[in-house]
Simulated scan of single mutants.
Amino acid sequence: MKKKQVPSMVKDQRLVKKRRDQIVKAAVQLFNQKGYHKTTTREVAQQSGFSIGTLYEYIGSKEDILYLVCDSVYDEVVENWAQLRDENLHGLDRLKQVIEAYFRVVHDLQDEVLVMYQETKSLSGEALNYVLEKELKMKAMFEKELQKGIDEGYLHLSKEEMELACHNILVAGHMWTFRRWVIQREYTIDQYCELQLRQLLEGFKIDTNVQTNLG
């Protein structure tokens, strides 16, 4: 997975990081309000606190801004997720905590996550492939945790079931932001974590006797 090289006229890497962090923060706010395509680079520069000329000292194009946003958000999600995970837990308790930590990171970064998933499609070529590879790396982290459960004997999943379970976990996290206009009116993040974990790990509770009688 090769990282895209975003051009910069500035050689001081500490300054580059500082300015790009400002650009990302400003872009997330504007992309949430207006969308990527309706936001201009001049607006991003103004929101960042410097001129359009200064902006172009740190990027080469508008798409570079979106790439920096997606790259930065993925890194922040993974870093914060790692900080929330309790490495002292084992077995099913660990699996539950890993999933819950992911949901809580999405909650903390919901504006950034929403922009990332809504606007990734506007990237092209190398940048798009890089970002999609990062998504697969997140899926692989859940695969690793589920495989531990299989190896320890408390999970029983085929390869196909495990793959789908990883997608379900990722999408359950996304839903907290994509459908927040209704989900967050109905549930707190604590309730959401509890109920999602129950459904993901236990499924629906079905009374087979009732089902047979209805059939």
Score class of each variant (00 low, 15 high):
Q22D: 13
Q29E: 11
Y36F: 15
K62D: 05
A26Y: 03
G60S: 05
I59V: 15
T54Y: 02
F31P: 11
K34N: 11
G60D: 05
A82S: 13
V77M: 08
D86N: 15
L30F: 03
I59E: 03
V69T: 07
D86E: 09
I65K: 02
K18R: 14
I23V: 14
G53Y: 10
R14D: 13
D75V: 05
L15D: 10
R20M: 01
K38C: 08
I52S: 14
V28A: 04
Q83L: 14
I59N: 06
Q47L: 09
T41H: 01
I52K: 15
V16L: 04
T39S: 11
K38R: 13
Y67N: 05
W81M: 04
R85L: 02
Y67F: 15
E63I: 04
D75Y: 11
S72F: 13
A27S: 14
D21F: 01
V69D: 09
D21W: 00
L68H: 07
V16A: 02
S48R: 08
F31R: 07
G60C: 04
K25S: 15
I59L: 08
K62S: 03
V24G: 01
T39V: 05
A82E: 14
E79F: 04
G60V: 05
V24R: 07
K18S: 13
G49P: 11
S51T: 15
V24S: 02
Y74F: 15
D21V: 03
I59D: 01
G53F: 11
Q22W: 03
S72T: 15
Q83A: 14
D86I: 03
R14E: 14
L84E: 12
R20W: 10
R42I: 11
I23W: 03
G49K: 09
T40Y: 01
K25M: 06
Y58F: 15
R19E: 10
R20G: 00
A82W: 02
Q46D: 11
A45T: 06
L30E: 04
V73G: 06
S61N: 08
D75A: 15
D71P: 00
V24Y: 03
E43M: 07
